[in-house]
Design a binder for these strands. Structure first.
Lengths: 207, 207, 207, 207
DNA sequence: GATGAATGAGCATTCATTCAT
DNA sequence: TATGAATGAATGCTCATTCAT
């Protein structure tokens, strides 16, 4: 089932008759991931998308806007598939597991996207002062909600601050996914997910 | 004692008769942190450093080189003070605590530097293909060594992969420090450090 | 007839609807001839051509490329009109006369071009190590062919090396045309052509 | 005897205790010939001369002045040795021979100097508007004087204009020496000198 | 909508020249 | 005299953006 959803997401981007806007976003993801935002030219994106330079400005306000829309577009899909998956269970620990796997599957299925989101958008906070990264907040707050739910259910430690816990989880996944991508996706993330899940729950102390 | 060392580090940068090279690095840290690497101009750095544009090229190969040297220079000092501090104890759990605090103190004492290192250099992996980030590896591997030591001492869980654990710790600290800086350093990191230390050791499960 | 062709060449450059590329080449010839290659700025050329700086880089790889293309473009036309003229006769002595006149007419009709070719491109051998000046070889070898033909017809001295003779002729014409241009074209080249033709054929010894 | 003089000239530059000014001129000749005037930096010259950048400005007004002084210095020596040689004979034809050989020997003995004079100084007419190339005039007029003398002696054709004849000779020698240098001095100039002498006197017509 | 030629502001970098030592 | 660190004006080139077609 999970696989089907994932494929659907992928399909959404790749199959179907892509609109020009989608072609551009897809091309931008690749170009940004290859060269970084600042070393990507609009011309390069246009070429890869198979459209004229000017066409890009019909769909996007400017270069920054491509990055923002790419991010929002992706986040919308990511969050919706994630939410869907999380509904399958009520177990907070299980949900955490799903969150981790989902994160890694993203990195696996859309490496360019993952790279862009993690590397380029981090920078964005600086140059796009006006851009309030709402979708990202939604995404990271899913972990917070899981933690709160776990605390309410008496499974997770009530003394812990969910806002800190969420950053532990997200920061870790972010760091590992980034490392994995930069290392050329040369190792298997599945056992890593397993181990992270254990570590988040139990810590590193010997029991 | 710790405080004295920290002050010494700070002094090293700020007090004393700064060489022209140091003035430039210091100015670059500020300018990069304010505008991001790509939106920083060499002229802006020169102006802030109180030197002529051309002077920068006496001390640095090019703009990229400023970022690299800034990073290496900082890392050298950071690692040496961290190492010194870690020698004060043999207790791995205590060492972990020191590492966490050290990281946050850095963010506190040199916010521009921290910002540059965390945001700009992450991007560097992309545009500076040739630059192998050795100092960063040293820094992150300090956690790995602490974990291994803890496992050897029978305190930490031997089943855990130290290379994963190190990324949990670093990814978390990185994420939190970044968030803290971007939020204008508006809250106190001390209790956060406390809580993180607990979470790393015990996880989020209720005991 | 000859005159008509010459005018046609001129027209080719000046009349008609000039393409942007041609406007730039024409402007470059003027600017280079006025200031020399190195003291000519791309901005100056753009201004004189009535285009934006960036436009130049649509048509030319870089500043060097302007000089090269200017030269090749000119040489193509020069050689083709010269070849056409030379076909009018079989007499090697007559051909030599045509070559001389053609050279001087060039200097007269396109003084900027002549100046650029003679002064700037000579330097080019140094800075454009990779640029093999093929068109120039074609041009100078036309003299060699005339000499060889004269030798075969039994008119010219068979003991003379055509490769040396060609440099005598070209070196002389080059030197004189340059001097004439630098002197502000203040004297008539026609009698000079006459006398050179005689000198090449008979030398300076009294007969 | 000729050889001795030549060696003396060489010595004058190379042996002896070179003054700083001479060291700089010598270095400039090499650097200019290697890179062309505009691609030579004052720093490069200073380094090759073994002096500080600033020292150059003690002896020379500016970069242009180095080229000018280099030229004048050389010309002074060249003309004086040439004049000396020419005094050995009264025969204009013989004098012409001496002139040719002298020119080629120069190219052979001081290739860098020859290259600079022929390539860089030709350009000078453009950028050094104020510089009236007096020494060059003296040099080229030596040929004119030889021709006039020959005409007066009834050996050379009185109908020929000595000012044109001088440019035939100089233009040819210039062209050939340049070609020879640019071809890496890969062939022997002695037979060329022989043939040129014949051609100047008798032309290319079969007798 | 779609194009892509044209634009021109913007920036990294160089290098002749100066001057305090 | 001699030095060489420092200067800052100058310039080739890039690239996001526009707009006539």
């Amino acid at each position: 089932m999970v696989r089907i959803i994932r494929i659907m997401v992928k399909e959404h981007f790749i199959k179907g008759i892509l609109t020009k806007r989608e072609k551009i976003l897809l091309a931008a993801a690749k170009v940004f991931s290859e060269n970084g935002f600042y070393n990507s030219t609009v011309t390069k994106i246009a070429k890869k998308a198979g459209v004229a330079d000017g066409t890009i400005y019909i769909y996007f306000k400017n270069k920054d806007d491509i990055l923002i829309q790419l991010f929002e577009e992706s986040m919308k899909i990511i969050i919706s598939t994630l939410t869907e998956r999380l509904e399958k269970t009520d177990n907070p620990s299980e949900k955490l597991k799903i969150y981790i796997n989902h994160h890694f599957e993203l990195a696996n299925d859309f490496p360019e996207l993952a790279e862009v989101i993690q590397i380029e958008l981090r920078q964005s906070a600086k140059f796009m002062k006006e851009y309030k990264n709402v979708p990202f907040l939604s995404f990271i707050n899913i972990v917070r909600d899981i933690v709160i739910q776990g605390q309410e259910k008496g499974i997770f430690n009530k003394n812990l601050n969910p806002d800190i816990a969420k950053r532990v989880v997200f920061g870790t996944l972010d760091e590992i996914a980034l490392h994995w991508i930069l290392k050329g996706r040369s190792y298997d993330l599945l056992p890593v997910a397993e181990e992270l899940h254990y570590m988040f729950l139990n810590g590193i102390l010997k029991k």
